[in-house]
Nucleic acid binder design. Sequence first.
DNA 1: GATCATTTATATCGACCACTATATTTGACT
DNA 2: AGTCAAATATAGTGGTCGATATAAATGATC
Lengths: 193, 193
Amino acid sequence: MARPRVLDIEKAVRTATDLFWKNGYEQTTLTSLTHAMGTTPPSFYFAFESKDGLFRRVIGHYQATYLGFIDQALLEPTARSVAEATLYGSADTYTDSSHPRGCLIVNCSLPYSEDAIEVRRGLAKLRQARRAKLRRRFQQAIDAGDLPMDSYPGELARFVMVVGWGLAIDAQSGATRRDLHRTVAMAMKAWPA
Amino acid sequence: MARPRVLDIEKAVRTATDLFWKNGYEQTTLTSLTHAMGTTPPSFYFAFESKDGLFRRVIGHYQATYLGFIDQALLEPTARSVAEATLYGSADTYTDSSHPRGCLIVNCSLPYSEDAIEVRRGLAKLRQARRAKLRRRFQQAIDAGDLPMDSYPGELARFVMVVGWGLAIDAQSGATRRDLHRTVAMAMKAWPA
DNA sequence: GATCATTTATATCGACCACTATATTTGACT
DNA sequence: AGTCAAATATAGTGGTCGATATAAATGATC
């Protein structure tokens, strides 16, 4: 009953993910997006409504495709192995040569222009939500006797997040996977017995 | 023999530092710069040659004014106190309410457009140079018996840098100084005895 | 084969980007 | 007072930004 769409939405989202990952939010222009997708602005806006609309889909795709290890890590049996799985998983993902280095969310988080402030806010919420999940998991570990009673779950969660962000920047600066693994191993020495 | 300059160069650099710190490199536009400085584009270009030229001066000003604690930290007597001074100093600087949060260099480092790739390269070199200084300091500590013989100075330096970057992002996301201090205290538990 | 909603293409919108050509203002000097 | 180089201001450069108005192309349906 209508013209069939030529634009492969999923493929376009994958393409856009790479661009945002590599170049950040503002530096990924509509021209570069439509060019890489092999489409034109009207089709783009028909499919995604706006640059922000596409970005939201990209973030969803990114988390589902590349950050699954984080939710997986929460299922590890001990708090230590949760932290290890999170950080080693980050190290591996941030240095995987099949896609840009570092973390898309971190890469797109930092410099905020006024008009993209909503985008940053959304990303900040994502990071906060991830930390909250870790905190709850560590609280649960304390309750189960898996962590010392005097541990602070919020502190532990924040530490894991901070090291993870540092890894993202180090990876983006060119650190090797082995470099990151050594850093994770050292960070884990801070973990409560 | 000539018209005296009205534009206060040093003050203009300080103003620009705040803008780059807050908004990143690309998002700090010439319009916002000249407006905040109270000058016009021709005066701007007469004084700074280009946006990049100003940015180089900003980086110099930023390091001299806000990152002095890093070189100071290298003079601490022990490797542990070097690391502590570096990280606690970072935590304090990144959350000082008299200027934007986080680290200007980190804020301007991540998303690289092709035309600003030289700027990123320069910042990456700065970060690398800082890590090299730490590494040499830690090697010196090993030679002096202040660190175990089996310590890896490069690894220790990288760990300090990674935690520092993580702190910068956490601070920019709204973490308090106390939050960062707790993270630093925890990170220091990983330090070799 | 005509209809019609959906998707696509052409051409362009006003706004802003970093930057500058041209001309004017300024005041220490002769 | 007149000269002249340094600093400023007016106005605008071509280019690109995200986003669109308009209209042509498409193919399942009747």
